[in-house]
Each structure stands twice: as C-alpha cells, then as structure tokens.
Amino acid sequence: MMILRVFFSLLIVLTLVSCDFSAKRIGFSFMKTEIDTLINYTKVDELPVFPECKNLIDTDKKNRCFINHLYNHFADSLLKHTFGVSGYVDETVIVRIKIDARGNASLDGIQSSDLIKRDIPKLDSIINESIATLPIFFPAIKTAIPVSTVFELPIVVKLK
C-alpha cells in the first residue's frame, strides 16, 4: 500500500514538472493575461486636423497647428467687423464647436454674458458665419475610427 502511495505521488509530481518543463520549452504560458477593454469616451486619440496640418508628424505640433489655425480663423473673421459699445467691454465668450465624424464643423452653442448679448447682439451670427466658412477637417480619431468631437473655444472680447 505504501509503495502505491509513493508511486502515485511521484507520478503526480513528475506530471506537474513535465507540464511546466514543456510549457517553458515551447514558450507557452498558463499565466493569466489581461486585455484592456476599458475605453475612455471623454478623450480622443487624435484631435481633428486642418488640411494644412495633416502632414505634421509630431502630435503636439499637429494639435498646436489646429488650435492656431482655429484662433486665426476666428480672429480674421471678427476683425472684419466693427462693434459700437457704450462702455469698456472685457469679457470671454465660450464657443462650442462640434466637428462630426465626416469633418464638418457646426455651432454647438455660445456662452456669453448679458453685457455681450446686450452690447454686441450680432456676435452670435458673426461666429456662426465664421464656423460656416471653416474648411472640412480631418476628423478626430478614437481607436482608429473617425468620431465626432466638441471643442470649447474661449474668445476674449476687449472693446473700448
């Protein structure tokens, strides 16, 4: 009886060792692997890109190019107009711009103070016209798929 116990114990040990040996030899592992399936829906892998910025390789340069072109577009558009105000205006207007998965830009909303709404009532229509004249973008990318994004663009309005 004792011999059978020793024999089966030795057989079990050899079986476990031989499985471990063959796994190491073939490069096979029984270790648990984890796959990252969590997706952060609040961030994109790549921001939308103006056609002029598409060939930049560095992501930071590409993003700065996008932001600079966007600000320059709005500055050029707003500087074409003259605004008559009753006093000094130093306010920030938040413009929400949606860029869809096809690269088309549209106005998603404007957040401005009562002073801006009262003294510069046509500002909303000027901003809307400016967005309508934006070129078609290369859309934002999330896990290799074009996606819609919304940007908040602060515009500082200083008038005397």
Rank of each mutant, 00 (worst) to 15 (best):
63 N>F: 00
103 G>C: 06
151 F>S: 00
28 F>Q: 09
17 V>P: 03
141 I>T: 00
9 S>Q: 10
19 C>D: 07
14 L>G: 01
58 D>M: 08
6 V>N: 11
87 G>W: 07
31 M>Y: 14
58 D>Y: 10
86 S>E: 10
5 R>V: 06
123 L>Y: 00
81 H>A: 08
10 L>Y: 00
84 G>A: 13
29 S>P: 05
109 G>M: 10
49 V>K: 02
139 P>D: 08
155 I>W: 07
103 G>L: 00
121 P>S: 14
67 I>W: 03
35 I>F: 08
115 L>F: 07
130 S>V: 04
95 V>T: 00
107 L>W: 02
131 I>H: 05
2 M>V: 11
120 I>D: 01
117 K>G: 14
110 I>Q: 04
40 N>D: 15
136 I>S: 08
26 I>Y: 14
15 T>N: 11
41 Y>F: 13
87 G>E: 15
3 I>V: 09
62 K>N: 06
19 C>K: 15
116 I>C: 01
51 P>G: 15
84 G>F: 13
82 T>V: 02
39 I>M: 04
129 E>W: 07
97 I>V: 06
9 S>K: 08
139 P>T: 03
4 L>A: 09
76 D>R: 15
74 F>H: 05
44 V>G: 01
150 V>D: 04
77 S>I: 02
59 T>V: 14
152 E>V: 03
92 T>Y: 14
51 P>A: 15
156 V>H: 14
156 V>Q: 14
57 I>L: 15
4 L>N: 11
26 I>T: 10
89 V>D: 02
11 L>A: 11
113 S>M: 06
121 P>Q: 10
135 P>A: 12
75 A>D: 09
98 K>V: 02
151 F>V: 04
13 V>M: 13
35 I>Y: 12
148 S>P: 01
147 V>Q: 07
117 K>A: 14
50 F>E: 02
35 I>R: 12
16 L>N: 10
51 P>K: 13
72 N>F: 15
37 T>L: 09
109 G>H: 08
49 V>L: 00
33 T>P: 03
125 S>Q: 14
94 I>E: 15
25 R>W: 06
55 N>V: 05
10 L>D: 05
78 L>T: 04
19 C>F: 07
2 M>F: 13
160 K>P: 04
14 L>Y: 07
91 E>D: 09
47 L>Q: 02
145 I>A: 08
109 G>D: 07
17 V>R: 12
61 K>L: 15
53 C>R: 03
25 R>E: 08
31 M>W: 10
18 S>M: 11
66 F>W: 03
20 D>I: 05
148 S>K: 00
135 P>V: 07
88 Y>I: 01
148 S>M: 05
